[in-house]
């Protein structure tokens, strides 16, 4: 009896272990790969190594590439999901080189460690387009260009929006006490958004930034840090939160302390990213303005590839168009028209 029990346990363990190892592998669209028409010379083959599918933003980003790089548009897309692991991405890029794709599009999980694989791509004569996150390499010629968000501009946009809003409220000259929930220290959205907002803040002597503290881009940490802000400072006028998740936590902390936020509340809340749930919160009157981080990079990358095909030069750094949303807009109409 004991032996049978042990046998069943061992079987279960083997199943589990096998399950783990297969889940760690990058997901590849095998069927699409096999159906690839070998004889079609006009098709442009693009290999795209995506970070993962950890958020709605990421899924909208992937979908944008899938919808632009279609066979009707003259592309063949090889899509690799790296599931948050750099080694999967390194392998994906090496596979692209072996498959002799025409272009490699890479959304790097981390900034460093790309030199050798990019040299291999360059030696093979395949142009590499970096999207969204950035890479740090010795020689910038290793990649063709970078496409993504201008976080500094997002920060400036937030500052200018606040400038206008306070003016319209007749508080342009009042003393304004602010706090900032920062993203993970050192990440590019954190640096860009903080610096961008600070550049506008410099022009206003009456704006006082009480404290910067990191909420690590997560809701739980955002709530904890906001609780701390509320206990340390009285009469906070503005909360700048560097992503939507932290904003959700901050709003909760504010409401638990018996205060209100949003257009009709005690505090002005500025947020970044503009995911659907944040726009819903804005509709409910809890967020004043949200500054978009646009995931729809597919068509821009497609334009770049077309220009490269015509042997034109392209700019090294290209920013995607981004806008903002505030509570005065028709939010339900905006949400209907958005993919994420």
């Amino acid at each position: 009896m004991k032996n049978v029990c042990a046998g069943i346990w061992i079987l279960l363990i083997i199943c589990l272990v096998c399950g783990c190892s297969s889940s760690g592998q990058p997901v590849r669209d095998e069927t699409a790969y096999q159906e690839r028409p070998q004889d079609n010379e006009n098709q442009i083959v693009v290999g795209f190594s995506q970070v993962g599918s950890e958020s709605d933003w990421r899924n909208a980003n992937s979908e944008s590439f899938r919808s632009v790089f279609t066979e009707e548009n003259g592309y063949y897309l090889v899509f690799e999901d790296a599931q948050q692991k750099q080694e999967n991405q390194l392998k994906a890029v090496r596979d692209f080189i072996l498959q002799e794709v025409d272009y490699i599009v890479l959304d790097p999980i981390v900034e460093t460690g790309w030199d050798s694989v990019l040299v291999e791509a360059k030696d093979a004569g395949i142009p590499v387009i970096i999207v969204d996150r950035q890479v740090k390499v010795e020689d910038d010629d290793l990649y063709t260009c970078w496409v993504g968000s201008d976080f500094r501009r997002e920060g400036r946009l937030a500052g200018k929006w606040l400038e206008k809003y306070l003016e319209s409220q007749g508080r342009g000259k009042d003393r304004i006490r602010m706090v900032t929930l920062q993203g993970t220290p050192g990440s590019s959205p954190q640096i860009g958004r903080t610096k961008g907002f600070a550049s506008v803040m410099k022009r206003h002597k009456n704006w006082e930034m009480l404290e910067y503290q990191s909420g690590d881009f997560t809701q739980a940490k955002g709530q904890e840090v906001m609780e701390h802000f509320l206990k340390t400072y009285d009469g906070i006028d503005v909360v700048v939160s560097e992503n939507d998740n932290m904003t959700f936590g901050a709003v909760e902390a504010i409401e638990e302390a018996g205060l209100t936020c949003g257009p009709d509340g005690d505090m002005i809340v500025l947020s970044f990213d503009a995911v659907r749930a944040a726009l819903q919160a804005m509709e409910a009157g809890k967020i004043n303005a949200d500054f978009e981080c646009n995931p729809l990079l597919g068509s821009m990358v497609s334009d770049i590839i077309h220009r490269l095909e015509r042997k034109e030069t392209v700019d090294k750094i290209q920013y995607v168009d981004e806008q903002y949303f505030d509570s005065d807009m028709d939010l339900s109409a905006i949400m209907d028209g958005r993919a994420y």
């Binding site: 589990l16 272990v17 399950g19 889940s23 599918s53 950890e54 709605d56």
Partner: peptide, 21 residues
């Protein structure tokens, strides 16, 4: 260590790779 690395991934599979609210 097995579940340390696997449990989070299984969780992601259960939630279809989304943050479920």
């Amino acid at each position: 260590l097995i579940l340390f690395s696997a449990a989070r991934a299984i969780g992601l599979l259960l939630c279809n790779n989304l943050i479920v609210y």
